[in-house]
Design a protein around this nucleic acid. Structure first.
Length: 530
DNA sequence: TCTTACACTTA
DNA sequence: CTAAGTGTAAG
């Protein structure tokens, strides 16, 4: 089963159509590399989203890693991904504004170990952390802006700190993940809040990776050293190395020069391929298509928000429970109790925002950037979030993260977004929580964000079943009832809440939206099986 | 497994 | 120059 049809399992097929036959698409695409995008089918309704094409930059490099089994280091302070996730986007309406964001969802439901020079499954995955969305710092920006140059997500950072205050994406070590790109139309006529909010999701299977606290496969280490400029110090002729090593350590030199590569044992391929998807076994297979999902009409923002496709999230309350329960609590707590800002959060607050304007980022916004907020929304933003006067950390702040709380059913609604605000150190409150809690420390505010929706919907593990793109996302169309309702309720007010991109938010904060990435809501067959 | 100090690098 | 991103070796 997997999949094919719907990874999501949604019976209903929404209208979405993004992909009818994914398979085909997929295969074809990959081969062509950038040229063939996907979304052919997309026929959907989505206004204007159907012609959007996304090309992964340096796909060949990604493929090299993928063939070995990409590993991404995760640290408490946050580590960038390498290769960097950069894309070229075409087909956007020059004048329409879009928000580009990423999230990283579980690739499957397993925990891995690296032994014998190869990856293998050791058990079941830990509950996914609340997923956080990384909103590109330039968001929202016009199609012209996004199309003008490569869109880089290189500043996105990964962490294993479940209480991360910086808005970085939280992952579990030794688990497989799949990065995803979402393009959300943020036009005036289509604010997030709008039911017509259109969006599409693109997944490049070759960007899947296993999160690690230290590299496991020496081949990956080598690839990183050879290709990442910052690791240049570790390159070198053997001589150099030996020399260097000798100097530094005084020890004998390295037994194995860096150059040594282990053989790949891995035969088959990547570990990733996992179960299923053939994603990768052979190099050829790799291509990923990008899938474009469009959320379309069917999925209104609200829906989006809500639950993920039924399959995943909703179905089994129990599971969720176990998995997500905390969030629930947490969320509340945090919001109410802990967060000072409870208010802001509580309802929907805000969110989105921010970002842009202030970013320090280098490039971001062009002059034209409008601050105009929300099209759809009413606006509101105020949140207190923050605005901190601070502008200090720009570095990080560039992007906004949104966190939604999990998808819990109950509350799920949570689709809230939270913002995390990284306050300046001084300001930052200490968190009471013990480490390793699952939820985000910060709050999340509920808002209805469509984004979250996105997140949700897709959040399901791509992994096995899905990995690819084609399908996925879309399906989320109609959320399941129950869950949905829930969501709806809370969410319903979506519009308002919506954070939007108001630039006002502060610069300093990040917003994090957590999507419930978790996944498995119910352990779909496949997962179970596997 | 994970965390930290370190030397080296880019920006 | 400083700040920050690298993998390493040691803890």
């Amino acid at each position: 089963m997997a999949n094919g049809g719907d990874p999501f399992g949604l019976p209903e097929r929404p209208d979405t159509d993004c992909m009818d036959s994914p398979k085909e698409t997929k295969q074809e695409n990959h081969t062509h590399a950038l040229n063939s995008p996907i979304s052919p089918q997309t026929a959907s309704n989505q206004q204007g989203m159907e012609g959007i094409k996304v090309f992964l930059h340096e796909r060949e490099l990604w493929t090299k890693f993928d063939e070995v089994g990409t590993e991404m280091i995760i640290t408490k302070a946050g580590r960038r991904m390498f290769p960097s996730y950069k894309v070229k986007v075409t087909g956007l309406n020059a004048k329409t504004k879009y928000i580009l964001l990423m999230d990283i969802v579980p690739g499957d439901d397993h925990r891995y170990k690296f032994a014998d020079n190869k990856w293998s499954i050791t058990g079941k995955a830990e509950p996914a952390m609340p997923g956080r969305l990384y909103v590109h710092p330039d968001s929202p920006a016009t199609g012209a802006h996004w199309s003008r140059q490569l869109v880089s997500f290189q500043k996105l950072k990964l962490t294993n700190n479940h209480l991360d205050p910086f808005g970085h994406i939280i992952l579990n070590s030794m688990h497989k993940y799949q990065p995803r790109l979402h393009i959300v139309k943020a036009d005036e006529n289509n604010g997030f809040g709008s039911k017509n909010t259109a969006f599409c999701t693109h997944v490049f299977s070759e960007t899947a990776f296993i999160a690690v606290t230290s590299y496991q496969n020496h081949k990956i280490t080598q690839l990183k050293i050879e290709n990442n400029p910052f690791a240049k110090g570790f390159r070198g002729s053997d001589d150099m190395e030996l020399h260097r090593m000798a100097k530094l350590q005084g020890k004998d030199y390295p037994v194995v020069p860096r150059t040594t590569v282990r053989q790949r044992v891995c035969s088959s391929g990547s570990p990733f391929s996992g179960e299923g998807r053939g994603v990768r076994g052979s190099p050829e297979a790799v291509g990923s298509p990008y899938a474009c999902e469009n959320g379309l009409s069917s999925s209104s923002p609200q829906e989006l928000l809500s639950p993920p496709p039924a399959a995943y999230a909703l179905p089994h309350p129990h599971l969720q429970h176990s998995q997500q329960p905390q969030l629930y609590h947490c969320t509340k707590r945090k919001v109410e109790e802990n967060c000072p800002s409870g208010d802001r959060q509580h309802q929907y607050k805000k969110a989105f925002t921010g970002t842009s304007p202030s970013e320090g980022d280098s490039y971001y916004h062009p002059s034209s950037y409008p601050p105009p907020p929300p099209p759809g929304l009413p606006t509101n933003p105020p949140l207190g979030l923050t605005d901190s006067p601070y502008s200090a950390d720009m570095g990080q702040r560039q992007a906004c993260m949104f966190a939604t709380s999990e998808p819990r059913l109950d509350d799920l609604s949570c689709t809230s977004w939270s913002y995390t605000c990284p306050l300046p150190p001084a300001m930052t409150p200490v968190e009471p929580y013990p480490p390793y809690t699952q939820h985000p420390p910060y709050s999340s505010s509920p808002q209805g964000s469509r984004l979250s929706a996105i997140a949700h919907q897709s959040s399901p593990p791509l992994g096995e079943p899905i990995l690819h793109d084609p399908y996925q996302s879309q399906s989320s169309g109609p959320p399941r009832q129950s869950s949905q309702n829930i969501h709806s309720r809370q969410l319903s007010p979506p519009l308002r809440e919506y954070p939007r991109y108001t630039p006002n938010l502060s610069p300093s904060l990040y917003h994090t939206l957590e999507s419930h990435t978790h996944i498995r809501g119910g352990v779909p067959e496949w997962s179970a099986a596997s």
